[in-house]
């Protein structure tokens, strides 16, 4: 059975139809890309999957849970992790502390055990610090752990968001334009990291404009245009799909 099923999802904002009857599914271990011109409804779809917004109609099933009815923090606890197109790094915290917040869902210490720093709490803290540092190393930010997150360059901010989300040990990771603002070398590095994350067993759904990157790492691609799905299939097929070429008229695929 598919891990994630988007079933005839529509989303209206006032009179605007951001998504129209979109369906697709994602299997465990897949890397799937969601592409489409600006305003195609990609981020809207991400918000529905991560529980930030509710679909007007249709369902988003994660295994057997209807994500459209859950809060973001519940979606996260079920195993849906995400990053944001406009960086939402916690700027005034250290890089390491950012990732530690990512481990929140895997921790148990409540406010009272924090107040009293019980031994169990201290053990958990040590474990959180170790795990967070390991996660940072996975994305190559290990040596910047103690810097202020606000000082990171754009590329590293993307990586930090990925690390932060990975720290929650998601089953599926949603990446919203992870390659935006990266140069070629950084993009290649990012592709490498994404592949490694996939190899570790995380299923990945990503929105991206960098077609080279998308074609390089995706197993399958879904194309949205004006809120409608116009194509779905392996990268090679998508590249030659007349509908897709029409939607991207003038752009180089």
């Amino acid at each position: 059975m598919a891990l994630l099923r988007v079933e005839s999802v529509s989303k209206h904002f006032g009179g605007l139809e951001a998504l129209k009857d979109v369906s697709f599914s994602l299997h465990e271990g897949q890397v799937k890309a969601l592409i489409g011109p600006n305003g195609a409804g990609k981020t809207t779809l991400f918000n529905l999957i991560s529980g930030i917004d509710r679909p007007t109609s249709g369902h988003v099933f994660f295994r057997d849970k209807d994500l459209g009815r859950l809060s973001p923090h519940v979606a996260s606890r079920l195993g849906v992790g995400r990053t944001f197109q406009h960086s939402k790094v916690f700027d005034d915290m250290s890089v390491l502390d950012n990732v530690k917040v990512g481990r929140y869902a895997r921790g148990h210490a409540g406010i009272f055990s924090a107040f009293l720093t019980m031994p169990r709490h201290r053990r958990e803290e040590t474990a959180v610090a170790d795990a967070s540092l390991r996660t940072l190393r996975r994305v190559g930010l290990g040596d910047r752990a103690h810097e202020s997150a606000g000082n990171l360059p754009v590329g590293d901010r993307h990586l930090l968001e990925i690390a932060r989300s990975l720290a929650s040990e998601p089953t599926i990771l949603l990446l919203d334009e992870p390659a935006a603002g990266l140069n070629n070398e950084e993009t290649a590095q990012l592709a490498e990291i994404v592949r490694r994350v996939r190899d570790d067993g995380v299923t990945i759904l990503l929105v991206e404009h960098d077609m080279g990157f998308v074609m390089d790492i995706s197993d399958e691609v879904v194309v949205l245009d004006y809120g409608k799905k116009i194509a779905e299939g392996p990268p090679l097929m998508i590249r030659n799909d007349p509908e897709v070429i029409k939607a991207y008229l003038g752009e180089d695929l």
Binding site: P72, F84, K88, F90, A105, S165, S168
Partner: peptide, 14 residues
């Protein structure tokens, strides 16, 4: 501190 800085992000982290 996280929710203060970016509430949506904190929510999506559980």
């Amino acid at each position: 501190r996280g929710l203060h800085r970016a509430e949506i992000a904190a929510m999506s982290l559980g």
